[in-house]
């Protein structure tokens, strides 16, 4: 008969367990700033690099969850994070206008590039973004999109519109992966197609392939390709539970001289990724 507790005993155990579980959660409310950010800042290792410096400078821990910009903004709207580090200016401004966030401040930018197979079947190398996208559409070359409402995806949609082209979402040559950037580049390589990526992820991709990358940069440096990152504090007037003191601490620190210098010095595979441009 051993090994089977009576229902009453089981119930007491259950209560004890729940107490243990939630007790731990209640007891240890650490002084940590909770941030929602985009996959690019996490995947490149920038946050891993910055977080210890932030801890040394302020004594606070930085915790982040890396998702698409869409979900990051949603987490902010639901008061689940204290601060956001995202890169979708139009959506960010709407977010602030609707009263969800305050003190939106530019932090840094990197740029987007259009990559494609070295053979470049649509012949877009060296062209402007508008010319390149027109050429891809005209040639019906495969174009691989994130399709996940991320900052990169939003940027891509804006580029089609800015180039006076209809969104090719329904076209057979337009492939929507719904996944992260590196997966998307790999899909583009498999499909012998083009894609839009942030430079940081491309550098990572290129170094992973150790000089044998099938995807190469074909369009870069054009003004519309600038990818601006901003920090936004979640509005404490809307969200009583957020720790705005910490959020503000982080926002000030990341736009301050120490962090800006660190961002400048951050290199991936020997190449700088982000250009700090905080105006403080």
């Amino acid at each position: 008969m051993k090994g089977t507790g009576s229902p009453a005993k089981g119930f007491i155990l259950l209560i004890a367990l729940l107490a243990l579980m939630f007790g731990a959660a209640w007891a240890a409310e650490p002084q940590a700033v909770m941030m929602a950010t985009t996959t690019s800042t996490d995947d490149t290792g920038l946050l891993d690099y910055l977080a210890p410096h932030f801890k040394t400078a302020t004594g606070y821990e930085l915790r982040w969850t890396a998702t698409g910009t869409g979900k990051a903004l949603e987490l902010g709207k639901n008061c689940d994070v204290d601060v956001l580090l995202v890169h979708a200016p139009k959506a960010e401004m709407k977010f602030v206008e609707e009263g969800n966030g305050i003190n939106r401040t530019l932090v840094m930018y990197n740029d987007f590039v259009i990559t494609g197979p070295a053979a470049d079947p649509a012949g877009i190398k060296g062209k402007t973004v508008a010319e390149a996208l027109s050429a891809i559409a005209a040639k019906k070359s495969p174009f691989v999109s994130r399709g996940d409402n991320s900052g990169t995806h939003k940027m891509e949609q804006e580029l089609w519109t800015a180039s006076n082209l209809p969104l090719p979402e329904k076209e057979s040559w337009y492939i929507s992966t719904g996944q992260g950037m590196l997966v998307t580049i790999n899909v583009a390589a498999e499909k012998n197609g083009y894609t839009l990526t942030d430079r940081g992820t491309y550098i990572k991709y290129e170094s992973d392939k150790a000089g044998k990358a099938p995807q190469v940069i074909l369009v870069e440096g054009d003004a519309p390709l600038l990818n601006q990152y901003s920090v936004i504090e979640v509005n404490p007037k809307r969200c009583a539970k957020v720790n705005n003191m910490l959020a503000h601490q982080f926002a000030v620190w990341v736009t301050g001289p120490q962090a800006q210098k660190l961002i400048q010095e951050f290199k991936l595979m020997g190449k700088p990724l982000f250009t700090p441009n905080a105006k403080r």
Binding site: M21, E29, N78, C79, D80, V242
Partner: peptide, 20 residues
């Protein structure tokens, strides 16, 4: 368990007990 949700005050989001 989102802070806007009915159990938001328990602070379970982004914790192991939350996942559990």
């Amino acid at each position: 368990i989102s802070r806007q949700g009915p159990l938001g005050h328990m602070g379970l989001l982004f914790t192991l007990p939350g996942i559990a």
